[in-house]
């Protein structure tokens, strides 16, 4: 362990003895964007960890910073964005400090990413099979023929029927669900230790979404990869993940087991988010909507980003509360669970 622990400790320390060493530890990550109007703090002090083979969901609405977090882990932040602070430890190496050449080796190898839109990940002028072959060859010293065999194997694993035939198809010939299966095959080509799925089913119909989520759950058990699932839909997280992080305004509001957070949310934002979602049996009653809207990126308040919409807003909320365990093994960033004390 040794090196450079310090400030981050307070943020992550979760109860529980002898937790397995984390595959991924994000410490106080800050990813900012310089704009003409000022600096947007898209991700502002996010910390979490993920054990090998585990699954974690990140839920948030637009502007919560959930996707910027995943792009930061992949080091895919382009100007005017930049990682302003913090560390992203992957198997002990800090991805923030790693030279681009090494990051490229990790990307698509040990860490891979599946996006919402499979057409953005697939090249329209190459067959889907050849794209998987290229991905394999980029990371492994094997022959093209062997790589194609592996591609067919991967297609079979992600449930593409007649894989020997389908490898020769072009992306536009496939349905949305099949394309997303191809990008998942592509992501799994090099047996990643970490698979990041960013809104993987948002563009899909509900029955196709169910197929893809079943596939992800099944694969996670079979290939033993850790999964980080980014989504706006807490129902999707419930299908795949053990644990969930709720983000708002670039910060982590709450973290805990999916069951705990959905059955008994603690943070006022989590409460509001769940209250906004219609549940069976709620017919005829108004939804417990959160008033107002997410503040504009440049108008985020000092301190807790949710204060302007929070029914429990207190004076102390102008300072950001730390993530703390209220006593049941989860983490909440809210002064309500701090007795309203000043930091």
């Amino acid at each position: 362990m040794g090196m450079a622990t310090g400030q981050a400790e307070a943020v992550t320390s979760r109860g529980g003895a002898a937790a397995p060493p984390a595959l991924l530890t994000v410490e106080n990550l800050q990813t900012f964007f310089r704009t003409s109007g000022g600096t947007v703090r898209a991700v502002d002090g996010v910390s979490f960890d993920l054990a090998a083979g585990a699954s974690l969901g990140i839920v948030g609405e637009s502007g919560s910073g959930k996707s910027v977090t995943s792009l930061s882990i992949m080091r895919l932040i382009d100007r005017p964005g930049f990682i302003a602070g913090g560390r992203i430890l992957f198997k002990g190496r800090d991805l923030v400090e790693l030279p681009e050449r090494d990051v490229r080796r990790i990307r698509g190898g040990e860490i891979s990413l599946v996006f919402q839109d499979p057409m953005a990940a697939l090249n329209p002028v190459y067959t889907v099979g050849s794209q998987v072959v290229e991905a394999i060859l980029a990371h492994r010293p094997i022959g093209r023929k062997q790589a194609m065999e592996r591609a067919i194997e991967l297609f079979r694993m992600v449930g593409i029927p007649a894989p020997e035939v389908r490898v020769n198809e072009y992306p536009h010939k496939l349905s949305g669900g099949m394309r997303q299966r191809v990008t998942i095959a592509l992501a799994l080509a090099n047996e990643p230790d970490l698979l990041i799925l960013d809104e993987p089913t948002t563009a899909l119909d509900v029955t196709v979404q169910a197929q893809i989520l079943d596939l992800v759950r099944d694969l996670q058990q079979r290939v033993d990869t850790a999964v980080l699932l980014i989504t706006h839909d807490i129902g999707v997280v419930r299908e795949v993940c053990e644990e969930v992080i709720v983000m708002y305004g670039g910060r982590v509001m709450e973290r805990g087991s999916v069951a705990k957070l959905t059955d008994d949310p603690k943070h006022p934002y989590t409460v509001g988010l769940l209250g906004s979602m219609p549940q069976p049996g709620m017919k005829g009653r108004p939804l417990q909507a959160i008033p107002g809207a997410v503040p504009a990126p440049l108008a985020m308040p000092q301190g807790c980003p949710f204060q302007s919409r929070c029914p429990h807003m207190m004076e102390v909320c102008t300072a950001m509360p730390p993530l703390k365990d209220p006593g049941d093994g989860r983490l909440v960033a809210c002064w309500l669970y701090e007795g309203g004390a000043t930091p």
Partner: peptide, 13 residues
């Protein structure tokens, strides 16, 4: 977004 969706549904009702 989910939180805004709830406001609009309430308004429509």
């Amino acid at each position: 977004d989910v939180s805004v969706q709830a406001q609009v549904l309430n308004l429509l009702s």
